[in-house]
Design a protein around this nucleic acid. Structure first.
Lengths: 215, 215
DNA sequence: GCAACTTTTGGACGGTCGTCAAGATTTTAT
DNA sequence: ATAAAATCTTGACGACCGTCCAAAAGTTGC
């Protein structure tokens, strides 16, 4: 009897926990949108609540404080953005195809998700001042690095080469190019983005051409 | 007589202007230090004043508002940081020497001026959200790009090659590497910096080896 | 040395922030 | 149907923000 009662209570408890988590996620997503629009410095709890369907007080029902909420929002970002090129890698059968589709995806996300990306760079930079985000940021950065490396490694494989630089450096290089194009995008200059389109294939080539040739 | 009187008045006026400008600069430098320490989001006028020898009220005597002050601080950053490698370029006589000294300088400023650099990236990112900084940021970025290009172009010249990628891309690549190492620096991991030391020469090589060889 | 002007101080203002808690409302278990 | 529990709203709080201003302090021209 006690067993039955316990499992029933467990079910109730689990359902409540699930509902609680679902709302937490919902609010974290609203936070993410607010951050992407306003940036870290100008994001306030009232502004976040206005982007959700609740009042500002509810945020302290689901989150301990602002930092807790923002941290959860960062984790939501991670869930969204660290597997973007996996399909491209999985389906490419030639180096040219991989290069072309990677470039297309690169520029598409630059165009379509620009606010989200500027948020990411904002938060990554915040972690240089505020260490409370740092662990989450480092974890996301590591997953982004892995994502980029899957592209580079596969590209090198298809070209029967080995990459010319390390995994960390390859990520840093492509991230730098991305960030620069993002600045150009927001500055309203279309040129940097178009220039990048022409240049990305060459960068990919350079990243493997400098490496040792394989049989 | 009116002429003499005018020139005297002019001299007085000029002296006052000079003094006014000197104090503006002094306060802008204090602002820069505050920004480097706290980041954009947490920098307040009272905090800035505390870093200077004046009270917070004086800031509105020399600057129209906070934005005006921060903009001036950004310009101070520019005056500091866009000619860092020029000596290295001017004095290098071989590719190996240029590569070595550039790498050393790169890592030295990464270590010594880390707070200033995290500020730069913070402000550049702010310009993605707030367009009032954007023009100054773009101008500084352009000068940084030119600074990096002087290094790359000279290096290619010493190796009798042409760079494999464009000026904009070369800057983006090296800036990405720098930014990544900066994150590693603040995260307390010494490895990324040491890894960069080993990898920078290879990156430089790749940036010219992919390009056409010259007679 | 005095009057006119510049510079600096420090407090007051209206506003917004994160946080909190009391009470209203909704959902749930029985 | 109803009591209990979970969820949400609303308004208040102390703190801190950028800004402004009256008056003190310092400087300059004559």
């Amino acid at each position: 009897m006690t067993e039955v009662a316990e499992t029933k209570q467990d079910r109730i408890a689990r359902r409540q926990v699930d509902k609680f988590d679902a709302r937490r996620t919902e609010l974290a997503v609203a936070t993410l949108h607010t951050l992407a629009e306003l940036g870290y410095a100008r994001t306030t709890l009232r502004e976040i609540a206005q982007k959700s369907e609740f009042s500002h007080g509810v945020l302290h029902y689901y989150f301990a404080d602002k930092r807790d909420l923002l941290t959860e929002a960062v984790r939501q970002y991670e869930a969204l953005c660290v597997t973007r090129y996996d399909d491209v890698v999985a389906q490419a059968e030639t180096a040219e195809q991989l290069c072309r589709e990677f470039t297309d995806m690169f520029l598409a996300t630059l165009r379509d998700d620009a606010p989200l990306h500027r948020l990411w760079y904002d938060l990554r930079n915040q972690s240089l001042f505020d260490e409370s985000f740092r662990n989450d940021v480092l974890e996301i950065d590591e997953r982004r690095e892995a994502m980029i490396w899957r592209v580079i490694a596969r590209y090198a494989e298809l070209r029967h080469r080995e990459p010319a630089i390390s995994r960390a450096a390859a990520y840093a290089v492509l991230d730098g190019l991305f960030q620069r194009a993002l600045l150009g995008e927001f500055a309203g200059a279309g040129e940097p983005v178009r220039a990048l389109k022409g240049e990305l294939p060459r960068v990919l080539e350079v990243l493997v051409i400098g490496g040792p040739e394989l049989g």
